[in-house]
Amino acid sequence: MRTALKIGFSFGLTSGVITTLGLMVGLHAGTHSMPAVLGGILTIAVADAMSDALGIHVAEESKNHGNTHDIWASTVATFAAKFVIAGTFAVPVLFLPLDLALVVSLLWGLSLLAVLSYALALAQRVPPWKVISEHVLIGLSVVAMTHYLGEWVRATFG
């Protein structure tokens, strides 16, 4: 896979998982509202995917050595990966009770992160357990922080 596409796909997948899970968990803790969680997911899928794609675009342009085709390939790959990955989290929310949907989403997101981390570790020839552990631990940290932040918002303003 070309480097530009790998950059966009890896960034979009990682951001899609971490951002969407964090938002879902925080909104759930703060509201316990399916429409709020679903609206958050859809907002992430569109607005944050565009924001991340533009961020990758500008970052690649700032290197002053990428060709225009590669820059746009990273941009489009970032948007597509983030949009699709974030969108997948809407499925359990639509079809399962919200508490169960959060558990399923957490398992889904961490599995995606683990698979990507495994592939990265193989490509870098490093022990997969180290890369997987690092990335999953960061993901779980975001989930924990956003859960408590959501609870604080509900207790303070709810």
Rank of each mutant, 00 (worst) to 15 (best):
D52H: 04
L137H: 03
A101F: 04
M145R: 01
G55R: 00
A45I: 07
V37T: 06
G40W: 04
V143T: 12
V143P: 06
I71R: 03
N64E: 14
V37P: 00
G66L: 14
S117T: 06
S74N: 06
A77H: 02
V103M: 11
L106D: 06
V136W: 04
V76H: 02
G66D: 07
P97S: 08
I41Y: 01
M145S: 12
G30I: 06
T31W: 05
P127M: 11
D70W: 02
H135F: 09
V93P: 05
A47H: 01
S141T: 15
A121G: 10
A81G: 10
A53Q: 02
L102A: 09
K82Q: 07
L100V: 14
V91D: 01
I44Q: 11
P127Q: 13
P35S: 05
A90V: 10
A121K: 04
F79G: 06
G55K: 02
L98D: 10
I132H: 11
A101Y: 05
L113E: 10
L54G: 03
L94D: 03
L120A: 13
I85T: 12
S62Q: 09
G109I: 04
G30R: 05
L106N: 06
K82S: 15
V46S: 13
A45L: 05
E134C: 05
L100D: 09
V142A: 12
V115H: 00
A119D: 04
G55H: 00
P128G: 09
G40C: 07
L38A: 13
L120W: 03
S51L: 13
S141H: 03
G109H: 06
S117W: 05
T75N: 01
V58M: 08
E134A: 14
M34A: 14
L98G: 11
V93A: 05
M50K: 00
A49Y: 03
H69E: 14
L96P: 02
P92N: 08
N64H: 10
M34N: 10
L100R: 11
W108E: 14
A114D: 07
A121M: 06
T31Y: 11
T75D: 01
A121W: 03
T78Q: 04
W129R: 14
I138K: 08
G66Q: 12
A81W: 00
D52N: 13
H32M: 08
V115F: 11
M145D: 02
P97W: 04
K130Y: 08
F95Y: 15
L94E: 12
A123G: 11
T75M: 04
R125G: 07
F95V: 15
A144M: 12
H57R: 04
A90D: 08
I41P: 00
A49G: 13
G66A: 10
L94Q: 08
S51I: 11
V143L: 09
V136T: 11
V103I: 15
V93W: 02
G40A: 07
D48S: 14
V46E: 02
G40L: 09
A36H: 03
L94S: 08
I85P: 01
I132E: 10
T68E: 15
V76K: 02
D99N: 12
A144Q: 01
P127R: 14
